[in-house]
Simulated assay, not measured.
Amino acid sequence: MTQLLDLPSTRDEAWRWADLGGIAAAAALAPVAAPDAEFLDLPGAKLLFVDGVLDEARSDLGPVTLGPVTLGAVDAGDHPLGRRASHGWTLRLGADAVADPVQVVHVATGRENHVAAAIELADDAAVQVVETYVGVGWSNRLARITLGKAARLMRSIRLLQAAGFTSLREEATLGEGASLVTTVLGAGDAGTRIDGAVTLAGEGGYAEFGGALLTRAEQRQECAVRVRHAAPNGQSHQLWRAVAADRSVASLAAAVEVARHAQKTDGEQSLRGLLLQRSATVNLKPELEIFADDVKCAHGATVGELDARALFYMQSRGIPPARAQALLTRAFVADALDRIGDERVREAFVADADAWLAGAL
């Protein structure tokens, strides 16, 4: 049985929109047959986990190893969801190494499962990691990321579970000149919590963390991401889009913290929500905590409906109402998905968003 007693209360500011009851319900879901799960047409390593256990016959580990995942520097492994996962997969690349993409598919068939990941890139190493979540149940994941000098990591995450709950805890530490770009798409019907802590520990680090959450029916999805600038000349961008239909709730909380000595920091947040019906809810909370005096930080947060004039114009040109709504909504989500550099991965994410729109409109 899920140990919910050790989870924070919604009175805790960082958990104010958390769906703790949704986690409990997901962990109690009865087992179902494993749904189909396919890898994208990409080279490189392929890992398939079913209820947290590697399916060796359908996997190709490549440079990835399995085993215990050691605690990282961020949060000291004390996160209430992240600390549940200790065993999983590790990707380590040496200096100047460039690896083919690594794909990880997580299949859940009910109840709960926990998997940890450690990604450690030495100086000037580079890799792309693509993760996909399907099935039902509570899938709880912890990722600890360490990037050396000028290392580059692109992370793309598809949350497509049909029911239950997916919780992600992301902890990343960036060295001098390192780059981390993370894009998340929540286009399934499961509840979601994306919990991130990114530290730019080296000078000139670059971090992007964002994506799109698409909610419908009674679904609840949320993100709570904090980027900490601990060194000068760093850049960070948090771009999130939320689309809420029916009586669903999407919540976005994005924070930037600039240490006193982290001069010349450039931090940007863009949070936008779109209500497809007025019965839906989008919560936005941008936050800046700045202790340095020579910085450029900005944030924006807006919630609205589709532009009535644009809808009228499109319909006057013969476009059916549902199609016009889909086109405008897709354009709203597109700027979050355009951050994905690999065209094949980006097209898969766009197809997932289109499939969601077809069912929601």
Score class of each variant (00 low, 15 high):
339 R>P: 06
314 M>N: 01
223 C>V: 02
288 L>Q: 12
277 Q>K: 10
305 E>L: 12
221 Q>N: 08
258 V>L: 09
237 H>F: 13
271 L>R: 00
274 L>A: 12
245 A>P: 03
333 V>L: 01
275 L>I: 06
317 R>E: 03
256 V>W: 04
325 Q>M: 14
277 Q>C: 06
302 T>R: 14
298 A>H: 12
338 D>K: 10
297 C>R: 10
291 F>Y: 15
234 G>K: 06
264 K>E: 15
228 R>P: 03
275 L>C: 13
237 H>K: 14
241 R>G: 02
280 A>T: 01
319 I>N: 03
299 H>G: 11
283 N>K: 13
326 A>Y: 02
295 V>S: 09
228 R>T: 13
310 A>G: 03
298 A>P: 07
235 Q>C: 11
247 R>P: 04
247 R>S: 13
285 K>Y: 12
221 Q>G: 07
297 C>H: 07
305 E>N: 09
281 T>S: 00
336 A>M: 06
249 V>P: 05
247 R>H: 15
311 L>Y: 01
248 S>G: 10
334 A>H: 11
310 A>M: 02
304 G>R: 13
271 L>H: 01
287 E>L: 15
253 A>T: 14
315 Q>H: 07
249 V>I: 10
244 A>P: 00
233 N>C: 13
236 S>K: 04
245 A>D: 10
232 P>R: 03
302 T>C: 14
233 N>S: 15
265 T>D: 01
240 W>Y: 13
285 K>W: 10
226 R>E: 14
310 A>R: 09
327 L>K: 08
321 P>D: 14
244 A>E: 06
278 R>A: 14
271 L>T: 03
233 N>I: 09
281 T>C: 07
268 E>C: 13
329 T>G: 01
276 L>R: 01
288 L>W: 11
288 L>Y: 13
328 L>K: 01
237 H>C: 00
315 Q>C: 09
301 A>Q: 10
286 P>N: 13
299 H>S: 11
318 G>W: 03
314 M>C: 04
280 A>E: 02
316 S>T: 09
297 C>A: 15
337 L>T: 04
324 A>D: 05
310 A>H: 12
333 V>I: 12
246 D>P: 02
266 D>P: 07
309 R>Q: 07
327 L>C: 00
315 Q>L: 04
308 A>K: 08
299 H>W: 08
269 Q>P: 12
325 Q>Y: 11
242 A>T: 09
315 Q>V: 05
226 R>V: 08
